[in-house]
Write a protein that binds this DNA or RNA. Structure first.
Lengths: 211, 211
DNA sequence: AGCAAAATCACCCGATCGGGCATTGATCGC
DNA sequence: GCGATCAATGCCCGATCGGGTGATTTTGCT
């Protein structure tokens, strides 16, 4: 038994990059009050590991194959409302951040963060605080007034992105073309887009899409 | 002096994620025939480090702030034609891969690769071979027939992505609107896009943009 | 139950787009 | 030199888009 202390923070790591998991692991093991108790390479595995390990905190990446990070956070948070979850991902994007936080995440960190920032975030979350990387916080602030996109609007925008005409989108979603136009008009207003193409670009940059 | 062997592979790591650099470092240091001789957090630093360290091989990420990986590869390869460069990045995209390889990279690996695959790639490159991750190889094969986009076409497409109308693009590029339309028509044919929006999406997915 | 918000559908119209077809220079390789 | 290739340009025209305005229905929340 290597881990002697009973009060050490038990951490679960979920990331589809093996090398990144190693990097996180060495950072945590370098701290005397933390232990990596498990790792997962995708969202489905993260959920299973969380169920069997009941870690004090889970470090989860958003970009993962199959069940992605957001879905994993949702599932874990629904089953374990007291779960401490930290998002550690490559990309900002206010929409992504808001979704992660509302789905149950307690912190949103970027992979550009240093070991110390990661460790600090873990300790803060363990103390019941919420943490958002400063780069991300500014982004959220600058989009504070703007509204989110509804599921319906995202469906329309995804079809727009893949080159479908309004009429075709209407057929696919089983609504009239005018409805699609109304939806799209609303989307462009919300995003401040000049046209449909710009709307797709802005939505991508703000993290409305799962890429 | 820790590094006793004179025949060990000297590696430079360039990645803007500190934790990822750590992960790569532990993987390399776990191998008795490799040494991490330097690290860089962006392309500009990578160039400087390469100049002063002359590593046997450089592991470079493409997504980096300021001078990105492609520019760094270009600069290093131009100054040191014998340089061994391995791209280690998160994303595939045949266009990105082709650009990296033509700019001087000797290998293209994804961060989903295991330590063993990374170490193997380094040894292969040291033996003069080229390495391309299998996931990426298949992608290139499936787009083997399709042509690349020219700089001019990329300029047009970037403006399309940001919501500019053909007329405005024409003014910005100081050409006639008909020229822009001709260029765009050609772009859509090359990419097999249904409309301008689809063209932007396909270009993004295939790595024509620096995102 | 009752109000607010979102979603749906409808019509008009000017601007923009995308396809087809043809012409001019300029650069490049043979 | 000369054909080839490509960027640039022009015109026509039907399809699509984006803006404005208004009405009805559904949904959610109090």
């Amino acid at each position: 038994m290597v881990t002697g202390g009973a009060d050490r923070i038990r951490v679960l790591i979920a990331d589809d990059h093996p090398i990144m998991r190693d990097g996180i692991a060495v950072a945590l093991e370098s701290s005397p009050d933390m232990d990596v108790v498990g790792q997962a390479a995708d969202g489905a595995e993260a959920i299973v590991r969380f169920r069997e390990l009941h870690p004090d905190v889970a470090l989860i990446d958003l970009q993962m194959p199959g069940v992605d990070g957001l879905q994993a956070i949702h599932a874990i948070s629904a089953e374990f409302p007291q779960a401490r979850i930290i998002v550690l991902t490559s990309y900002p994007g206010d929409a992504r951040v808001k979704r992660a936080l509302t789905l149950g995440a307690n912190a949103y960190m970027l992979k550009t963060a240093t070991r110390e920032e990661i460790l600090g975030a873990i300790r803060s979350v363990m103390n019941g605080r919420r943490v958002v990387a400063t780069e991300v916080a500014g982004e959220i602030a600058s989009h504070a007034w703007s509204e989110m996109l509804s599921d319906r609007e995202l469906s329309v925008l995804r079809l727009v992105a893949t080159g479908h005409t309004n009429k075709r989108i209407a057929d696919i979603l089983c609504v009239s073309e005018d409805t699609v136009k109304a939806r799209l008009k609303n989307i462009m207003t919300k995003l401040g887009a000049l046209d449909r193409t710009h709307a797709v670009t802005l939505a991508r940059n703000r993290g409305f899409f799962d890429g």
